[in-house]
Simulated assay, not measured.
Amino acid sequence: MRNESLTQARKRKGFTQEGLAELMGYSKASVSNWENGYSNPSLSDAFKVSEILKEDINTLFSGLKVQFQCTEEEISDKEVG
């Protein structure tokens, strides 16, 4: 399923796919795949995208399955106190 929320948020912030990918340390193809629904980001990458674009993670990735592959340290960093 295509991720229009991610595409629109990226464009609103003035990023190209290549520019966003560069900030994240990925290739343009990774961002393109996330936007076109060919793959989904890991949980830590989804948080990073939301921070870069200053958008709520639920808004960007609602209805999509993100890959829950993160370390215990990453989980504890995101825990709500």
Results as ranks from 00 to 15, higher is better:
residue 78 K to N: 10
residue 62 S to W: 10
residue 56 D to I: 04
residue 61 F to R: 00
residue 61 F to I: 00
residue 73 E to C: 06
residue 77 D to F: 12
residue 60 L to E: 03
residue 75 I to H: 02
residue 54 K to E: 15
residue 66 V to F: 07
residue 66 V to G: 03
residue 77 D to A: 12
residue 75 I to K: 08
residue 64 L to E: 08
residue 58 N to W: 07
residue 63 G to Q: 07
residue 70 C to H: 03
residue 52 I to K: 06
residue 49 V to E: 03
residue 81 G to N: 14
residue 70 C to T: 05
residue 81 G to H: 12
residue 62 S to D: 14
residue 79 E to Y: 08
residue 43 L to G: 08
residue 45 D to V: 09
residue 74 E to A: 06
residue 71 T to N: 01
residue 46 A to H: 04
residue 73 E to S: 07
residue 43 L to M: 15
residue 70 C to N: 03
residue 43 L to E: 12
residue 42 S to T: 15
residue 57 I to Y: 01
residue 62 S to K: 10
residue 67 Q to N: 11
residue 76 S to H: 02
residue 80 V to M: 14
residue 67 Q to L: 15
residue 42 S to N: 14
residue 63 G to L: 02
residue 76 S to P: 00
residue 43 L to F: 14
residue 65 K to T: 12
residue 59 T to M: 11
residue 50 S to T: 03
residue 42 S to I: 10
residue 51 E to N: 07
residue 58 N to V: 03
residue 48 K to M: 10
residue 64 L to H: 14
residue 58 N to G: 14
residue 56 D to Y: 07
residue 45 D to W: 09
residue 54 K to G: 04
residue 48 K to N: 08
residue 77 D to T: 06
residue 45 D to K: 14
residue 59 T to I: 08
residue 77 D to C: 08
residue 65 K to V: 13
residue 57 I to R: 01
residue 64 L to F: 15
residue 48 K to D: 10
residue 79 E to V: 15
residue 52 I to M: 03
residue 61 F to Y: 09
residue 65 K to G: 08
residue 73 E to T: 07
residue 50 S to E: 03
